[in-house]
Design a protein around this nucleic acid. Structure first.
Lengths: 198, 198
DNA sequence: GTCTATATGGGGATAGAC
DNA sequence: GTCTATCCCCATATAGAC
């Protein structure tokens, strides 16, 4: 197998294990075993654990950007795009109830470890934040687009955290429905304002 | 020093370190050092790390119940009591921005470790949940008291998660203000309903 | 590019002297 | 109740043969 293919496999397995078990709890041996590699050979591809973490975060960032671009082309309206974000909670509910939000839990873990990559992990949130802010701006909320983006991110994080603790799928669905209501209210507020100013 | 005093000191130090650094990342040596105990002597008080975790969770549970009882006597109205809960985010903002919510981050970590104590940690959420539900019921929201309690818990978790990632105090204050608005709306909805049914 | 063998450090946990 | 000394395991990381 070529080096780049092996490297890619390592990153994919590490990505999954860091999510399912956490960064610290995942050992080189765990990753090497699932890739089908000896521990020794592992170091040919990655010198340190932090290097793998950096590659995993970079891949998550690229995947996130691709995901958002997909939503951008799938949905015509800003509101429809924001709904795609909200419905991610339902689409990924099983994994969320088992392991939480991949971004939120990684940020929390790295914050506690005082790890240098903490800011790069937090930047994954920024990718969502800026994309959501653009959608809210397009919706007519130019002035408070960032605050609305953060508010929705906040809700998704809260839902993920409690869904993990209580393993309650109906809670997720109820809160998603509440976010849909909230979003509709934001749409009305924006169109109401534009009518008044017209 | 008496055994019970030493034990209590161990639990307090472990509680703090589990919060600040995480459960797995905290070693016996870390705790022993801060208590001023040798590693060997440590095992006189606690046989396993899980035993310490159990004691820490039990203490957190007792502290939480005491906290809620304090709010119960401090504030006369259910709305005032709920506000005490909401304002906890501001009172603890510095620690939250550094290490997240003690309950949420512990639940997340234990979920990933597939640790047996995960359900006991989640029960800490239940203490808040049931207390909040009682306040909402007293407010006149008997039918959806639990859903409202979960909704507020969800928000506090979301705020804690993003506050840790972005270290943004103004975000916390803005979302707390939004929760106050939401709470007022719930009060109006309850009193409006009771007037109509009268 | 992959392997085995190994160095080194730290973790949890125990035994037994004081 | 506290200590030192020690065991064992597993972690990251390296060296060098193939």
């Amino acid at each position: 197998m070529s080096a780049s293919e092996t490297r890619q496999q390592i990153v994919e397995v590490a990505d999954r294990l860091f999510y399912e078990r956490g960064f610290e709890a995942t050992s080189f041996a765990d990753i090497a075993k699932q890739v089908g590699l000896s521990r020794g050979n592992f170091y040919y591809h990655f010198k340190t654990k932090d290097e793998i973490l950096g590659a995993v975060i970079a891949q998550r960032r690229a995947n996130t950007i691709a995901l958002l671009e997909g939503w951008e082309s799938d949905a015509a309206s800003p509101a429809g795009r924001i709904l795609s974000f909200v419905h991610m909670l339902i689409a990924n509910r099983t994994r969320i109830m088992a392991h939480g939000c991949p971004v939120g839990t990684l940020c929390n873990e790295l914050a506690k470890l005082d790890h240098a990559a903490g800011s790069q992990a937090a930047a994954l949130f920024s990718v969502f934040r800026e994309w959501l802010a653009r959608q809210f701006a397009a919706l007519g909320h130019a002035a408070d687009a960032d605050a609305l983006a953060l508010h929705l991110l906040m809700r998704s994080q809260g839902v993920a955290a409690l869904a993990t603790a209580f393993r309650d799928e109906s809670f997720i669905r109820r809160e998603v429905a509440d976010m849909e209501c909230w979003l509709k209210a934001q749409c009305r507020a924006a169109s109401g304002r534009s009518r008044r100013s017209a």
